[in-house]
Design a binder for these strands. Structure first.
Lengths: 185, 185
DNA sequence: ACCTGAACACCGTTCAAGT
DNA sequence: ACCTGAACACCGTTCAAGT
């Protein structure tokens, strides 16, 4: 039972996104499920895109928490594994988050910033502990890891990654290969 | 001057996609620009999605050619650079190609297969030449490289990659860092 | 401040009909 | 085989009006 109309709208939009992707999300159905008219959302959001940005920002916060908690508990591998698990659990949200936003909606830029700051910190800590090479700066190394993680998840969601018989989920495997190569340096 | 209505439809859809993303592509505007009615496309494609799949398949063929020609000319780095250049030159097409296709449209699966076969071959050749480690199989190594390339391009298109003052385009830089780490093994 | 109902200008898709 | 025009069931967004 949502405490406010605004919350109900975001929840309904998230449910619809999970059910059938972005084209399933219509302001009319969102209103219907929230018990308001089809244009009540305009009192809480500037339009459909703004509502979807709220959904995306919320998911980015979940990414930030997964990366932070995983990094605190067990270092880089755990942080990445927690992030990958979250991303694969909600594919439509992942694609929304990294989808085509016109010139950075601002709200999203800040949330993305928060999400990845902790990864740079985790990378930096592993460098100081001698578990990652120091021949590359932490930010640049984080960009490499981030690219591989993002690409592996996105390819996996599209069914473009080679399937293996045993072992963990493919994206985790890909990232482990990267980390192994980096640590062999 | 397109030789057939079908070709005109694909060309118009591609132009509209480049101009304003997927939501700019409407069958009605595609028909308008092709000099036919708004439902003539149904005589050539099963629907809007099928038309977009044709656009995506065409772009995948361009990726295959870039990877093949680049790999033949100058090895892995050149192949990747050619692919990245093509992807960045047509951002909306890239996002369409790797976007959410319901259960692999078949037509696209085969085109994607063709596109990446040559990368595995290039990787395998570099392994034999001693320029890449043989501790990982060629397919698995290609998946790692592919993930990093894909992720770096996708993050760059979303403005999520850290900006650098000098040097080449960011995705190329990220991939060069990966290859350097792999070759240091 | 928040919400409603009607209206506008679009969509994708289907169908009966033409050549 | 290929195309057209009308029609259907939707959209997002705006607006005047209500409490």
């Amino acid at each position: 039972m949502p405490t406010s109309t605004r919350e109900a709208l975001v929840a309904a939009a998230t449910d619809l996104l999970d059910e059938g992707g972005p084209e399933r999300v219509t302001l009319r159905e969102v209103g219907r499920r929230s018990g308001v008219s089809h244009n009540a959302p305009y009192k809480h959001f500037t339009g459909k895109q703004d509502l979807l940005a709220a959904v995306a920002a919320r998911e980015l916060d979940a990414y930030a928490e997964a990366l932070r908690a995983g990094g605190h508990d067990g270092g880089l591998s755990r942080a990445v594994a927690a992030y990958v698990a979250r991303a694969l659990a909600h594919p439509a949200r992942f694609r929304l988050v990294y989808g085509p936003w016109p010139a950075g909606v601002g709200q999203l830029g800040e949330a993305a910033e928060r999400a990845w700051t902790s990864l740079v910190e985790t990378v930096s800590a592993e460098q100081r502990a001698g578990r990652l090479p120091v021949t590359i700066g932490a930010v640049r190394l984080a960009d490499l890891i981030r690219s591989t993680v993002h690409g592996a998840v996105d390819l996996e969601l599209g069914g473009h990654l080679t399937k293996h018989e045993h072992g963990p989920a493919s994206p985790v495997e890909v990232v482990e290969d990267l980390l192994a190569a980096l640590r062999r340096d």
